[in-house]
Amino acid sequence: MAGVSEYIVVGSILFALGLVGFFSRRNLIVMFLSTEVMFQGIVVNVVAFSGLHQNMDGQMFALFLLVIAAVEAGLALGMIVLLYRRRGTLDAEAWSAMHG
């Protein structure tokens, strides 16, 4: 049976991959998908802790992470649609200059 440190390693790899994606990709949608990957890493970790401590705290945390992810997706997609209407592109770099 896999111990908690294995789950931590896997979860943190997912988190780090999401972080790399968030830093390096320029497509707004892929950037937000990367943050969702980071959420997945956290879910793996907190549920592993929940199993370790034999209580529900970790799972509750993961459940509320789901809520946050849904909230984030709703707002982020609304904003992406708005930004796409303004510039006609999903490139994050199109918004690097503060004019206009």
Partner: peptide, 14 residues
């Protein structure tokens, strides 16, 4: 698209 084929600072991100 162009912005999907060019990563931004891939080295530092990694």
């Amino acid at each position: 698209t162009v912005y999907d084929t060019r990563a931004r600072e891939p080295f530092f991100a990694v």
